[in-house]
Write a protein that binds this DNA or RNA. Structure first.
Length: 372
DNA sequence: AGGTATTCACATGAAACTATTCTCTGAGTTAGG
DNA sequence: TAACTCAGAGAATAGTTTCATGTGAATACCTGT
């Protein structure tokens, strides 16, 4: 976490002024924050919440802030786990399983309401949780305030899905969206500034060439101004330079970094897929190697059955394979477009979405796992 | 020629099932007093 | 009598299967000219 956050002064001020009443024991409005990824949303809210806690500690007011990322696997990606995590943050341990959800819910209320205070909960990537379990938990949470006797609860929702608010139930929408803040993407100039800031803290002077900063900023600006992307590029370029023993970071290192980030991402996701999903991917791979111009769901399924037979794996239904193909598409390993071939049905047009060098590596991994 | 109806090959949805892991509870057992 | 053991009921979750319904447009089939 950097010590200062350039180009987000406005947003941070807004956030602060909305949240500040907490220090005087008032209930701050619920806030809804949106903006694409890498625009500093999480960073800003965490910064503000930290400050709030510091100040409240200093002047003795009862404020508790909780930051939770709803996307983290095994942490808060279901309603049960969200409340489990909230309770954890309040200092109560709850088991992973075995308890009914509404018990957690009750415990949570009692815990919050045990004394007079203001509690602020920031739910990052709230849309991913919503997609999994619907908006019931949000409704419950927003409704809480009326039921609490002593404490006050405010919610900060963070999402990178701009249309998220529209999908919500009206009641939740009006309650959660009391205040809205939009984080705009950084432009290339701002990205440069951010990079320069970090370079001052992270690198020795004169190591990073001017062109490198421009390049990182430009590449990231193409990806809707994603600052994290820019910083990753710079960091990986730095690592590569160090490994090669070169004295300075140059543009060519950024090129390698770009390639490597992509490669690592794909290889990691492929490796971490369950066996069935890998088998499906392997089938896609084999088919497109055989020069099929158009790989369709049916083709993949047939091939997949063969792969399963060869490896004595229990094969799944077509329904499931169809979903797996969709998942691989989401992961960006393959591209699967739904097309209609008129009289000849509707299916997915599937192709690989990875560059040749990465492909080679992936193929190696899968081949050792499934043979020919 | 132009318009409508069919039809294909899956997509997409919903519900239900399987297996695993874990808590809670109460009955039965056991050790110690 | 308190402490311990253990089986059974219930939960949460991930990953599937089963059943049901949806769908875009290339063709087949009509229609009237």
């Amino acid at each position: 976490m950097p010590s200062n956050i350039p180009h987000r002064e406005n947003e941070i001020n807004q956030l602060s002024s909305i949240i500040a009443p907490a220090l005087r024991g008032y209930h701050p409005n619920n806030i809804f924050i949106y903006g694409t990824c890498g625009t500093g949303k999480s960073l800003s809210i965490r910064f503000v919440l930290n400050q709030l806690e510091d100040i409240s500690r200093a002047n003795g007011s009862e404020v508790k802030t909780i930051y939770i990322n709803c996307k983290m696997k095994k942490v808060a990606d279901t309603e049960y786990r969200l409340f489990a995590q909230l309770l954890q943050e309040m200092g109560v341990h709850v088991p992973d399983t075995g308890l009914p959800t509404d018990v957690l819910y009750r415990n949570f209320f009692e815990k919050i309401d045990e004394k007079k205070r203001v509690v602020i909960i920031a739910l990052d990537e709230i849309d991913s949780l919503f997609k999994k379990v619907g908006d019931e938990f949000l409704y419950n949470l927003t409704r809480v305030n009326g039921e609490l006797k002593r404490a006050q609860l405010s919610i900060v929702g963070i999402t990178n899905d701009l249309s998220f608010l529209n999908n919500l139930d009206m009641r939740v929408k009006s309650s959660l969206g009391e205040e809205e803040i939009l984080f705009k993407p950084y432009n290339a100039m701002q990205l440069k500034d951010i990079l320069q800031n970090r370079i001052k803290e992270g690198f020795n002077e004169g190591i990073v060439e001017e062109g490198v900063i421009n390049k990182c900023a430009a590449l990231a600006a193409q990806e809707h101004g994603d600052a994290r992307r820019a910083l990753d590029l710079l960091r990986v370029a730095g690592e590569i330079t160090e490994r090669l023993g070169d004295p300075k970071i140059e543009e060519k290192h950024v090129d390698i970094a770009e390639e490597k980030i992509d490669m690592d991402r794909v290889v990691e996701t492929v490796k971490s897929q369950p066996r069935q999903s890998q088998a499906v991917l392997y089938s896609v791979l084999k088919l497109s190697n055989n020069g099929h111009t158009r790989v369709l769901t049916g083709d993949v399924f047939d091939e997949y059955i063969k792969v399963c037979a060869n490896n004595s794996i229990k094969s799944l239904t077509q329904r499931r394979v169809s979903d797996l193909i969709g998942e691989l598409d989401m992961l960006g390993v393959i591209t699967a477009r739904v097309i209609s071939k008129g009289r000849y049905g509707r299916t997915r047009d599937i192709s690989l979405a990875i560059s040749d060098s990465v492909l080679e590596k992936v193929e190696g991994i899968l081949r050792t796992r499934f043979g020919d």
